[in-house]
């Protein structure tokens, strides 16, 4: 059963120092979580996993464009009505719809990817939280896989 040790820090440098020490003590990067009310760009934690938001945006764009082309071409052919002497499939006009749906796909896919990767909107997403974050404090959670690590974490995080 993993144990969780947490501590509250007043300033970013102190929290970062504690994080570095935990890493030296053999904690995995993923096992340490820093909560803060503004991004800490120097933290190691975020670099741990690569974000796929950009790739998902491109994927969504491609899917959006494809569905736009299919939608416009198939349904217009089904209607098959001539207007203004224009061809049934008018690429110039349909291109605009394709552009908008490309963008829509990119927007929706990057949003979905962001929500998934950051674990937002899930049941119990707010477990392991301390509202002192909102006061500007930095909170560190350390997941410990063994009693030895619990001991180390408690020592580093200054709790006995």
């Amino acid at each position: 059963m993993p144990n969780r040790v947490h501590a509250i820090f007043d300033s970013v440098p102190k929290a970062l120092a504690a994080q570095a020490e935990l890493l030296r003590e053999g904690f995995e990067r993923k096992a340490i979580t820093l909560l803060s009310n503004e991004p800490i760009h120097q933290s190691e934690e975020a670099g741990g996993s690569r974000s796929h938001i950009g790739s998902f945006a491109i994927l969504g764009g491609i899917l959006g464009a494809t569905s736009a082309v299919l939608l416009t071409v198939i349904t217009t052919k089904r209607v098959g009505v001539v207007t203004g002497g224009m061809p049934i499939v008018s690429p110039w006009a349909f291109g605009i719809i394709a552009f908008e749906l490309t963008m829509l796909g990119a927007i929706l896919f990057s949003l979905a990817c962001m929500l998934y990767e950051s674990g937002l909107g899930r049941r119990g997403a707010l477990k392991n939280y301390d509202s002192s974050v909102s006061e500007g404090k930095i909170v560190i959670f350390a997941d410990c896989s063994s009693d030895l690590l619990v001991e180390k974490a408690e020592r580093v995080l200054g709790k006995g």
Binding site: V82, T83, G84, G85, A93
Partner: peptide, 17 residues
């Protein structure tokens, strides 16, 4: 008009050829 300007601008095919 054979190439009527009114037709393609209608979003719902209310006017057509």
């Amino acid at each position: 008009c054979e190439e009527a300007p009114c037709e393609p601008v209608c979003p719902v095919y209310a006017t057509y050829h």
